[in-house]
Design a binder for these strands. Sequence first.
DNA 1: AGTCAAACCTGGGCGC
DNA 2: TGCGCCCAGGTTTGAC
Length: 281
Amino acid sequence: MPELPEVETVRRTLLPHLVGQMITGVEVLRSTQLKNVSPEVLKEKLTGKEIRDVGRRGKYLLIYLSQGEVLVVHLRMTGRLLFYAEGHEVTPHTRLLIELIPPAELHLHDVRSFAMVFLLPKAEECSLPGIAALGPEPLSADFTPAGLAAALARHRSPIKNILLGQRVVAGLGNIYVDEALFRAGINPLRSANSLTAAEVGRLFQAIRTVLADALGSGGTSIRDYVNGHGVPGAFQQKLAVYGRKGHPCRRCGTTLVGERIGGRSTVYCPLCQPNSAKSVK
DNA sequence: AGTCAAACCTGGGCGC
DNA sequence: TGCGCCCAGGTTTGAC
């Protein structure tokens, strides 16, 4: 489940291998993953272009090409973007293959075919609906406690849903929302606009530290995630609550509880994250 | 406008 | 051993 730390790790592992590479061919193995372009047009527009940069916005990867176009990739649940220096056989789940200066290849591998691929002019990449609606990058200076407080004040849904929504802050998914709320000592069912200034401050710090820590571990590999070289991350060993329902809280020993919030599995500590605005401590 | 649930997909784990 | 069921979840879409 690639969230910001995983997508950023993919970006960092791919960047040194892709920049300066010439695309010599494209093979589309499942065209339904192409969202705004046909296989024929993708081939025509990519072939002969050079990769200039690899960026990221939220969970979107942005592969900038010569002559002003951008290949936008969202890995969703099970997508993997893999660089092979020597070429590699196509697997049953290879969805897109980009041939680089032979024999190198870039493969989009995606068991569940949820990943999305777009091709856009560089000037329009930020107008892609999924990107245009994104909140600030949590590890950038655009993300501030005051901005977070103002954004949360506009919503009365559970804080868990709001953080998953991408509009208040970009890049968090189910894993890091649960982890950040645990670190901040905030119950996931709390109404977003009920958080005190102190709680918003703790949440702000928790979001930043959990993402930075996960990035430092190369991301979290529960099932499918691997970086651009096929190497899994290590942060799953440090998770405090996600996937630990029924296990003891690492801080207080209380049994962690699981619940469905906003249609998503949610795990939290009933003692460290009490469901009451008053019980700040 | 804000909120919510369904849809998209497939493999793994489970109970029987 | 094998079948069927449920679950994982990011984003879009449509309904309320």
